[in-house]
Design a protein around this nucleic acid. Structure first.
Length: 901
RNA sequence: GGGCGAGUAGCUCAGUUGGUCUAGAGCACCUGCCUUACAAGCAGGGGGUCGGGAGUUCGACUCUCUCCUCGCCCACCA
């Protein structure tokens, strides 16, 4: 029966068919009790608000390649999927929706009802990205999908908080933190980006009491003068030394403040005098602590000025700045105003300038956690790819600061701290335990801390909590933890090396005494044709699903890998209007090439069976293989080795390029063409064997290719093997290289044969003879070994190079009216008859003579250099000698050919 | 200011420990081909003083120094 084999690969059919079958047959399900060696990956949990972008495509494809490759190698594979509750982003999203649909704020609803709303939202929209990820064909164990707010990981979060609290590593403190006025919450240092902004730098006059004399003090933020408590000068600054201890009046406010000595004042900057506002500047806060200064808070959490700002109270900080500046002008208290470019901290979340704000927050003392985490990376227990990220990691670890973990949000893990009315507090899993810890009776009223934890506080436990650690406050170990921790690979962007990678290492070392993963693969950044990062706000990011619909999942996966070298950004031309990325043609064309090769081999096989019956028991062994067959078998096995090495070394782009070159060049361009010729030449009873041999290699190609192109390989594998739909290539073994099949000598001989074929084509193409016209060709080969191979492959050469007849001999007389060429001492003659253009041929040969003479001169010069001959390795010298002799021999032949014209 | 990465054909990039490199591939370009697997294809071709300079070496795209350009990260600017 004929196999139904469409002319072109139609991705959508394969994708829609196989993914549901894989799920149904539980191909991706992991067994933590399996005897097989484990291989596991944690998916970086996408945000619950997230939608698929090309970063996910690259990242997921990389993970899937390793997961599928290891699965085929016989490992017990587990890919843990998960989703992140993304505190600020999600809360903001739901608040916005609440506003537009019901015109309500979260305060209108109250905490409990608002949190219920977020859960509702999550149930409705939260899974979108998982459906999108499934379109990528990724083989995660979906049954293990976990959400950071689920009960099990939430319990782990509580447990860790309590342990760190009890150990004194979590503490509450009044500090200057990064405040996001739009989100009304504190942010960690890592959540603040610095941007250069043009503003005015005002130099203000701080008059001495009862004097016309004044100090010049520069500031951008005139609205902060209400919090001024001192003016600092550098203790070494000769200009001001004598003024230390005197007092000046804060403009407008009129408050008498001291001139104090502090190194914070840089004599080289501005006037060398700096106003000190401890409540609104981190450095000023430190100055304040050193000099025991009062702290006057003048800004509200919503970034309006408070009652300490007098007539300016209630104004927004930026509005207030304008009005205060105007007033200062009116009072003639501004010495000068200059344009000034400086860096301003911007909230990664809201995009507005952060406000340094003094408030009570919770912190983790990170120093004690960093030492071990630094060690395991430095001693290569954990490998970074590319390796150079170690330096960035070391720098951060060595300068680690306390982590501000409290957020003034409602969506997140509420901090498990309980307060009594008289201010005692402790961390506990619930009120009962808290009372116990504080030694209180059951009727004492407690209040839970209202703040929630930074989202990353759950993320850093991910390696443990996904596997059930402390899921019930009790379970230190589980089958998953025993089997799959440490995980093998983490694939993520270098932008979260501090947010996530470093902290996972710290937490897993601290609480489990293990590394969380063995290898970390840092992905490339995807950029558009102009080098800009793909982003929603720039409008240069097409929906990957549209691209997939256009080119097919496998094509997109392959192209991404093909274009994304380890450690370097990827540039792709992007047409957002057309929702197109033209370079995806690379993968699509490749998929089509693979498809058609399969279609052709299948056709030949069926043709052979039709002609001769299914004599598939014909033995295929060295006795009936041609040199060409042995060549492709050698190339195939070499390729398997190279692929394994590439993946082992995390050179995934190389893996894709090796596949591309081998399949397209070696297999399709040469071997399939050779098969055509051998098939036609063969006795009819050998045709089945010829087709089968080629199909066997092709089937191995499919298995090599499956990790990156799962759908087309599954489809073709079934078409060729006729297996039941419930079987899958996913669980077949990866090809294992057979060393004895690798034969470099044969590879070299075939390469020479290819060169000769190419040379004949080249000679032909310089003429006006139609490509379909066959011409007589004669080849002179002195080397008997090579001649034997060429003799055997006579018909192959003839077919590939369009020869009407072909003569191969030790030496041949140059035929009349022929073009000639010499390749590695092998002479080729193509007879043209009347069509020959003698002048053109003479010119060509003269050029060749000049080229050879030039090379010979270079070679001779090298060899006549005493120091080269004595210093260079013997084999290099020998090679040069051989090359020289060969070129001289060739030169003689070309000269003879010229003179015979 | 500190650190990291990159500069090779018009574009995107390979180039393993310095010597089979007369520096490769894909796309783009030019010339032929609808050769019954594939025009999403086949065959052939043009195109680069490997960012500049210096050094080490018999020999440098590859190592060292230096300069220039671009990108990223960290720190910090009253």
């Amino acid at each position: 029966m004929k196999t139904e084999f469409p002319k072109a690969y139609e991705p959508i059919l394969a994708e829609d068919k196989w993914y549901p079958l894989w799920l149904e047959n539980k191909i991706f399900a992991a067994d933590n009790k399996s005897e097989k060696e484990a291989y596991s990956i944690l998916m970086p949990p996408p945000n619950v608000t997230g939608i698929l972008h090309f970063g996910h495509v690259l990242n997921s494809t990389l993970q899937d390649i390793y997961i599928r490759w290891k699965r085929m190698q016989g490992y017990e594979v587990c890919w843990f999927p998960g989703m992140d509750h993304a505190g600020i982003a999600t809360q903001a999203r739901v608040e916005k929706e609440l506003k537009t649909t019901e015109n309500l704020t979260r305060y209108d609803l109250g905490r409990d009802k608002f949190v219920d709303k977020v859960w509702e939202w999550k149930e409705k929209y939260g899974g979108i990205i998982f459906n999108q990820l499934q379109k990528l064909g990724i083989s995660t164990d979906w049954d293990r999908t976990m959400f950071t707010m689920d009960e099990a990981p939430s319990n782990a979060v509580k447990e860790v908080f309590i342990r760190l609290f009890d150990e004194g590593l979590i503490y509450k403190g009044k500090r200057i933190i990064n405040w996001s006025p739009s989100a009304q919450t504190a942010l960690s240092d890592e959540e603040v980006d610095f941007k250069e902004i043009q503003e005015k730098l005002y130099t203000l006059r701080y008059y001495f009491e009862d004097s016309d004399e004044y100090l010049q003090v520069a500031t951008v933020r005139t609205e902060t003068i209400f919090g001024d408590i001192a003016v600092a000068v550098n203790p070494e600054d000769e200009r001001y030394k004598h003024l230390i201890g005197k007092h000046v009046l804060v403009p407008i406010v009129g408050r008498k403040v001291p001139v104090i000595p502090d190194v914070h004042a840089d004599p080289a900057f501005g006037t060398g005098c700096v106003k000190i506002t401890p409540a609104h500047d981190p450095n000023d806060f430190l100055v304040g602590q050193r000099h025991n200064l009062e702290i006057i808070n003048t800004i509200n959490p919503d970034a309006t000025l408070n009652e300490n700002a007098g007539e300016f109270a209630g104004l927004d900080r930026f509005d207030a700045r304008k009005k205060v500046t105007k007033k200062l002008e009116e009072l003639n208290l501004i010495e000068k105003a200059e344009d000034y470019a400086h860096n301003v901290g911007i909230s990664q979340r809201g995009g507005e300038p952060i406000e340094p704000l003094l408030s009570d927050q919770w912190f983790v003392n990170m120093k004690p956690l960093a030492a071990k985490a630094l060690e395991v990376v430095q001693n290569q227990e954990i490998h970074f790819h590319p390796n150079h990220w170690i330096k960035t990691y070391e720098h951060w670890m060595n300068n680690i600061k306390d982590w501000c973990i409290s957020r003034q949000l409602w969506w997140g893990h509420q901090i498990p701290v309980y307060y009594t009315e008289d201010g005692q507090f402790t961390a506990a899993i619930d009120e009962t335990h808290a009372r116990e810890k504080l030694g209180l009776s059951a009727d004492v009223k407690l209040r839970q801390e209202e703040d929630v934890l930074d989202t990353w506080f759950s993320s850093w436990l991910w390696p443990m909590s996904t596997m059930g650690w402390m899921s019930d406050h009790n379970t230190e170990t589980t089958d998953d933890l025993n089997k799959f921790l440490p995980t093998d690979l983490l694939v993520t962007g270098p932008d979260i090396i501090f947010f996530w990678v470093a902290r996972m290492i710290m937490a897993t070392e601290k609480f489990k005494g293990e590394i969380p993963f063995k290898d970390v693969y840092f992905t490339s950044m995807i950029r558009d044709g102009q080098g800009r990062k793909l982003s929603k706000s720039l409008g240069n990011s097409p929906d990957p699903l549209n691209i997939i619909a256009k080119y097919g999942t496998d094509a997109v996966r392959f192209t991404m890998i093909f274009l994304a070298p380890l450690g370097q950004d990827v540039r792709m031309d992007v047409d957002v209007d057309a929702q197109d990325i033209p370079s995806m043609e690379i993968g699509r064309n490749f998929a089509n090439k693979i498809w058609n090769a399969g279609r052709f081999l299948n056709m030949k096989y069926e043709q052979a069976v039709e002609n001769n019956g299914d004599n598939s028991d014909v033995v295929i062994d060295d006795s009936n293989l041609t040199t060409s067959d042995k060549w492709i078998r050698s190339r195939y096995n070499t390729t398997i080795q190279k692929l394994n090495n590439a993946l082992t070394e995390f050179k995934v782009t190389e893996y894709s390029k090796i596949l591309y070159d081998f399949i397209w060049r070696d297999f399709c361009d040469w071997y399939v063409e050779i098969v055509k010729i051998q098939f036609n030449d063969a006795d009819s009873n050998k045709q089945v064997a010829i087709a089968k041999f080629a199909i066997d290699i092709y089937e191995g190609i499919l298995r090599m290719l499956h990790p990156v192109m799962p759908f087309i390989t599954e489809e073709l594998w079934h078409l060729l093997t006729g297996k039941d739909d419930n079987e899958t290539i996913s669980t077949q073994s990866t090809p294992v290289p057979v060393d004895t099949y690798i034969n470099i000598a044969i590879e070299e001989k075939l390469e020479l044969l290819q060169n000769i074929v190419e040379e004949i084509r080249k000679l032909r193409s310089s003429t006006s003879i139609p490509p379909s016209k066959k011409l007589p060709v004669a080849i002179a080969i002195k080397d008997a070994n090579i001649r034997t191979v060429f003799d055997e492959a006579k018909n192959v050469i003839a077919g590939m190079a369009k020869c009407s007849e072909i003569t191969i001999a030790e030496s041949v007389e140059k035929p009349e009216s022929s073009l000639s060429s010499v390749i590695r001492e092998i002479e080729i003659f193509v007879s043209l008859g009347d069509a020959i253009d003698l002048d053109q041929e003479k010119e060509r040969l003269q050029k060749e003579i000049a080229r050879l003479e030039g090379n010979i001169r270079g070679c001779e010069k090298k060899l006549s250099n005493e120091r080269f001959v004595s210093n260079a390795p013997a084999d290099v010298v020998a090679y040069e000698r051989e090359k020289l002799a060969s070129m001289k021999e060739s030169l003689t032949k070309v000269k003879d050919n010229l003179s015979s014209l």
